[in-house]
Amino acid sequence: MSFQTVTKVLLQGFAENCVIFAVTLLFAIPLGLIIAFGSMSRFWPLKWLTRTFVWVIRGTPLMLQLFVVMYVPGLLFDVTMPNRVLGIPIDPRMFSALVAFIINYAAYFSEIYRGGIESIAVGQYEAGQVLGMTGPQIFFKVVLLQVVKRIIPPMGNEIITLVKDTSLARVIAVQEILWIAEEFTTVGLIWPLFYTGVFFLAFCGVLTLLFGFIERKLDYFRG
């Protein structure tokens, strides 16, 4: 089998990885913010509920979470995963994978956000208050950009980890790039398996450049 054919087939697998990557970011980035606000809430039941949730998610393997989302709804509640979302056909296994990834990454992101928000000096909030700003004005006009600047490096790390984690979806039979590459071994081809590394490296390379760019963009101020 030619190099080109293998590349094409692997690219189809990698498209699955890219879908998991993009959809996870799309939902986990805002969901993480909601969780972060929950874990900083002054209403303690909400705070302890969210913190326990984050502890459970961060304290168990993503692989286990994939299995749980895949099997538990069907076994316990007789719920089956949908095969269509908003009219778009979707493999139920892919749906389960997305749910697990979104929850897992939202929990990690929420801790990064919380760290970022809590690192802003109270003086910044108070300066806004004495200037008659409302809570939302202080958050969006004073605090947010400072938080963004501080969380870009840890978010970059986490997002690069996500690129590689997408291949974990194979444990619930999502046919991502490593799954496909492994199938080549049944016809005696081992090199496609190693070749997959190039795809991940290229993707992470682009992300590294992108995050470097954003960091430089925010270099105009300190704090």
């Binding site: 000096a121 910044q124 004495v130 101020f221 704090g223």
Partner: peptide, 20 residues
Amino acid sequence: RKKRLHFGLVFQSFNLFPQY
């Protein structure tokens, strides 16, 4: 919030907004 505007406060540690 409105009442605050009767008063202004200059802090010991300035507390300027660094991004502006």
